[in-house]
Design a protein around this nucleic acid. Structure first.
Length: 289
DNA sequence: CTGTGTTCCTGTTCGC
DNA sequence: TGCGAACAGGAACACA
């Protein structure tokens, strides 16, 4: 599920349930997800007020009142579900269905129950000191946010100039730009009419970015913006914390549309699928160059 | 520096 | 209906 738009959608769902509230209790049903959870994980979170929930690339960050930060990554199959428990009292019982792969549950002071499920367990949770957040091993190497000013044609021009690898590979490289995954790389390249096989350096100008690079920056921003507005994409899982579905998957131009007609007006190409470094790439060989 | 393949893990889908 | 293979939104790592 989770590339930048999906993670942003999750962030927006978690905010009302967590921000300003106190984590009263944490149920931890495993010692590890992708990596071991930090020592005394539940104990360190209990009693802490959540000051803010922010996002960096595909990471969710819960800033706590003791200046620590809970870093969370959804991996491939991570999901948060927010529900509300009845006030304590006779017969009070959570109405939330317990999922098979629910590994962690946060119980908030306001009665919100936030369950984290992750069947494949590629997700990550870690705690970091707030003043050393930027140098945390998970965040240190990340490139600019694609929706920030810093991700400009001039920046991308510099980043691509010496790269001999494919455009697909550079855009997936979180050090170049942070937050894109397989879907949105395919979609952005399609919008920019750039082939995923195009050598990165060949798209860069000697001094200034050319037109294709400007189109690409716009395409990346545009597709992320549109996807966020649609509440992300829901392929197999629910992307939103309230269980409702995002609907951007209906707007995919090429992703998962192998053999479909190229949606570009006037192009009569057919969407192709190829494996590039072990992952499916979808593109129109007719209009993407 | 490069691309490629493997690994982590489980669930779903597809072809026979 | 059953069964095995292929594949899945991520990312680190080993290797040639």
């Amino acid at each position: 599920m989770p590339e930048l738009p999906e993670v942003e959608t999750v962030r927006r769902g978690l905010r009302p349930a967590m921000e300003g509230g106190v984590i009263e209790r944490v149920e931890q049903r495993r010692r590890d997800l992708r990596f071991p959870l930090p020592a005394r994980f539940s104990a360190r979170l209990a009693g802490r007020r959540v000051v803010a929930i922010t996002r960096r690339a595909k990471y969710l960050l819960a800033h706590l009142d003791d200046a620590t930060v809970l870093i969370m990554h959804l991996g491939m199959s991570g999901r948060f579900a927010v529900s509300h428990e009845c006030a304590a009292g006779a017969g009070a019982r959570s109405t939330a269905r317990r999922e098979a792969h629910e590994h962690i549950v946060f119980h908030m002071s306001g009665g919100a129950r936030i369950g984290y499920s992750d069947p494949r367990r590629f997700g990550v949770m870690d705690l970091a000191a707030g003043d050393r957040l930027a140098s945390h091993r998970l965040l240190a190497g990340l490139g600019p946010e694609p929706l920030a000013r810093e991700f400009s044609p001039a920046y991308l021009n510099r980043a691509l100039r010496d790269r001999r690898t494919s455009m697909k590979a550079v855009l997936l490289d979180q050090r170049v730009v942070a937050g894109l995954g397989n879907i949105y790389v395919c979609e952005a390249l399609f919008r920019a009419r750039v082939s995923p096989h195009r050598e990165a350096a060949s798209l860069a100008g000697r001094r200034r970015p050319g037109r294709a690079l400007c189109r690409l920056v716009d395409a990346v921003r545009g597709v992320l913006h549109d996807a966020i507005e649609a509440g992300g994409a829901s392929l197999r899982d629910h992307a939103r914390t309230d269980g409702t579905l995002g609907y951007f998957q209906h707007s995919f131009a090429v992703y998962d549309r192998e053999a479909g007609a190229c949606p570009r007006f006037g192009c009569h190409g057919t969407v192709a699928r190829e494996t590039q470094s072990g992952r499916s790439t979808y593109w129109c060989p007719n209009c993407q160059r």
